[in-house]
Simulated scan of single mutants.
Amino acid sequence: MDPRAGGFLTARDPAVFAGAPLDAIKCAAALLMVGDHVDTILLDGHAVVLWRLGRIAFPLFCLVLALHLARGADPGRYGLALLVLAVPTQAVYAAAFPYGTTEGSILFTLATGAALAAFLDRAGAMLRHLTFAAGLTVVVAAPNLARTAVDFGLAGILLPPALLLTLRDPPVYVPWLAAVVVGLNWHGWHPRGETAWVSALTDAGTILVCVPLAALAASGLRGRRRFLPPYALQAFYPGHLAVLVALRALG
């Protein structure tokens, strides 16, 4: 199969997603993120459909990160740019979510994930496998430890390297990617009436189906120029949170 035919796991050439395809993935992630945050901030978690679809947003953002790194982006500069945005945004994040006072936003998760992805990309196979095995053991056996510090916790940090290495060598790293995706919501909030493991597996199935489909659809735009202004998402992330917090304050 021609690697430029599109798709997620089959697109071995990340250049397929340069320009408009990558912007399309970003827009899909942003839209799903807003729905999730509307549910959390304004609807008190009652719109389960918005919440469930929102589970796809973070993996899409991680896919964008992995594609940038696979195309040769400097991981140091990439991570630093995320941290420069994360620090001033944290106050807005804390105002939006009750756990924001003790937990870093998704921007800190992505920055840490970018650093780990760059490290494991240069590491040997044994260290890669040991890292995923040890990390997922903590996710399952010590959820309180695994979910502290940043949004999506340890599993969220493991997702960018799992995606990057899957782009490099799908047969070897797809199992780890699937396991990390399950771990994203293993001990998280779940809808009333669902057990935690059923919810985690449902969310994992949704992610593992929808993320490749989104990438496949976006690859249809290959060859077209990007349409988002530079730093559009950097402004959009704190901006949409501030608007939702203001709407909540207005009742």
Score class of each variant (00 low, 15 high):
A94S: 06
R224W: 06
V140M: 13
V172N: 15
F8Y: 14
V243A: 15
G54H: 01
V243L: 15
A217E: 05
R225E: 15
L107V: 04
H240I: 10
I25E: 07
L213V: 03
P161K: 10
L53Q: 07
A162L: 02
F152D: 13
R147S: 12
L165Y: 04
A146E: 00
G153M: 06
C62E: 04
L177G: 01
V174L: 14
A95D: 15
L250H: 02
T195Q: 11
Y237N: 05
A125D: 13
I41G: 15
A146R: 00
T148Q: 11
V16K: 00
G153C: 09
A179S: 15
T101I: 14
R122D: 14
A111C: 02
A91Q: 11
A5G: 11
Y99C: 13
D151L: 08
H46Q: 15
A81Y: 00
W51T: 10
C210T: 14
G193M: 03
L53P: 01
L167I: 04
V139Y: 05
A86I: 01
L216A: 14
T148L: 10
D36L: 04
V49E: 14
T112R: 07
L233P: 08
Y231F: 13
L31E: 15
L32C: 01
L136T: 10
A81Q: 09
D203V: 09
N185P: 10
F152Y: 14
A123M: 04
G19C: 02
H187M: 05
N144R: 13
P238C: 01
N185V: 11
P229G: 12
V87G: 10
G223L: 08
A96E: 14
G135W: 03
L201A: 11
L221E: 12
G220A: 04
A178H: 09
A217N: 06
V34Q: 05
A70N: 02
A249H: 11
R12M: 05
M33H: 04
A95G: 13
G100I: 08
L247N: 00
T102I: 11
A146Q: 00
A235D: 08
A28R: 10
D151A: 13
G251C: 02
P98C: 14
A162F: 00
P3H: 12
S199M: 02
T137D: 14
L120S: 11
A133T: 06
L145P: 06
A57H: 02
L221G: 08
Q234S: 15
R55K: 09
V38E: 12
A73V: 08
L136F: 00
R55I: 14
E103S: 08
A95R: 15
I106T: 12
D121F: 06
G124W: 13
L221D: 06
A214F: 05
L9I: 07
V245A: 15
R55V: 09
A57Y: 00
E103W: 03
A86F: 00
V92S: 01
F152H: 09
P161G: 03
T202N: 07
L67V: 09
V139R: 04
L127D: 06
T148W: 14
R71C: 04
H129M: 07
L228I: 08
Y78R: 06
A29Y: 05
L208C: 08
A246Y: 00
V180A: 09
A29E: 08
A134G: 12
D151E: 14
H68S: 01
P191F: 01
A246E: 09
A162N: 06
L213A: 12
F132T: 13
H37A: 13
A73N: 03
A196M: 08
Y93I: 01
R122E: 14
D36T: 04
D13W: 02
